[in-house]
Each structure stands twice: as C-alpha cells, then as structure tokens.
Amino acid sequence: MIPAAFEYYRPKDMAGVLSILEEQGDDARVMAGGHSLIPMMKLRMADVPHLIDLQDVEGMSGIDLGAETIRIGAMVTQHDIIEHEPLASVAPILREAALQIADPQVRYMGTVGGNVANGDPGNDMPGLMQCLDAAFTVVGPDGQRDIPARNFYEAAYMTAREDEEVLTTVTIPMPIGGYAYEKQKRKIGDYATAAAAVQIVNDGGTCASASIAMTNLSDTPIYSEAAGAALVGTSVDDAAMSAAVAAMLGDIDPTEDNRGPIAFKKHVAGVILRRAIERAWSRA
C-alpha cells in the first residue's frame, strides 16, 4: 500500500499554511492526525500532491475552559479529550463520546479538528457538536469566520468550509443538564451503525430543554430539532420518548450498506436514541 508521491510541508504557523494552500490550490490538503486521510491516500482514493502537516502549527492544541464557552483547538486529540479532567467535569459527554471512537492507538493521533472537518458521516464528533450547538472557526485568505456545526455539513465529505480555509477551533457553549453519547457498533474501532448524542435539562421533573443529534444515519450528521421538541414540557415518560423517536425517524435518511438494510438501521436508531434519552435523563 504505497500512496502516490507528494510534496510534504510542515509549516510553523497558520500564515505558512495559508500561503501553501493559496499557491497550490486544489492540489494541497491539510492533515491533522492523518488517521482518515492516510488510509485513503494508501488506497489511492485520495490524491494529495501537496500535503500540509499541521503538527508544528502553534496555538492549535489548547483546551480552554471559559465561564460560558469551551474552546478546543483543532489539533487536540481524542486522547487529550479523554485525559483532560477539568474538561470531563464540565462537559462529560465529550469524554464519553471520545472513548467510543476507534481504538487507543487511533485516539492518540486522531484529532477533534480532523474528525469534524473531514465530513465523513461515520465520524462521531460532528453529531456531538451539533447536539452541543458548537461553532467551528475557519481561517482563510479573507480572515476568519465562525460556522455553526448545525449548518456545516452539506453532504458526505462536503462542508461549508472552503478549500482554502483551515478549521482551527471548536467553540462549545458550556453544556447544562444530563448527557449521553450512545453508540451501536459491530466491533471496537467500527463506525456507528447508529449513534445518538443527547443533552437534556430537568426542571423539577419536567424537561426544560433537550438537544438530540444522530450519527451515521444520513450522508451528514442529523440534528433533530423535532426530536428534542417532543421531550420539552414532558416528564420524559415512555410516550414522550416514543414521540421523540418517531420525530427522529422522520429526520434521518439511512442507506443500506454492510452495516445492514434500511429497516434495521431505523430500528437500531430508535433503540439507541431511547437508551441515550433514558441515560441522559437519569443524569439530569
């Protein structure tokens, strides 16, 4: 498995990255941990004549906890997320999700930025970030802009990020209430057959707000506003959960593949969402 030849760059700052992107255009791509891109290059399904390694770019590996927001640099790895105790105490759903991604070796290399920017519907962080209403900061030749995670994904591997832009930071409003990231997979390291991210607020036994997003059940992650709305104002009883599942099933659009036929995926999506809601509510 030998990839096509490429020129390799390891710039030390973002200005260096952007100038190579500008110079090489579509022939250049940035790489974070490389654990999505390198396998595709080895299979020669991705051809990258100019490969820009971000590992030495300063200021992209921080986790900053503010009063109202969490800022995660794009080069923060899944391993960093799992090991960061202060982060796990304010936003435990991040650790819960990261622990379900790939395997230990991949988590040392795989980054949050790569996971959300790649646009693979199988990645877990995009749905999670939609659930948390995160924003992605991208930097390009015309400066930087923030794109809400809920508006970022257009189709498989197609996102609102332009080719000459680099995703640098994920900003998450401080999560409140109970949480769960529930994932059904065939084996450790696999992408989800179905996964659900739930963040829910309990106000004296009544659901005050609920945010629900699903992974790998469409060609993008699916933020299901209707599923969350079905829980608000209820005591999150069986009928409310059934209504949330029905609403979610109306928003997803799974396709048949080696993880199963459409009917099976819808069935699993319902089971997983129900489990996620139950667990999140028990923690709310």
Binding site: M1, Y8, R10, G34, Y108, M109
Partner: peptide
C-alpha cells in the same frame, strides 16, 4: 506494527516517515 512515538502508542503503518 504498534510502536511508541514521543509517548504515544502509534500504528507505524499509518504514519509517513516525514511526520
């Protein structure tokens, strides 16, 4: 192919020598 690189367990088949 697991090796330890700067304190991380890494699959050496998924890293270019340049990295």
């Amino acid at each position: 192919c697991t090796v330890t690189i700067d304190g991380k367990s890494v699959k050496a088949c998924t890293m270019f020598v340049a990295q």
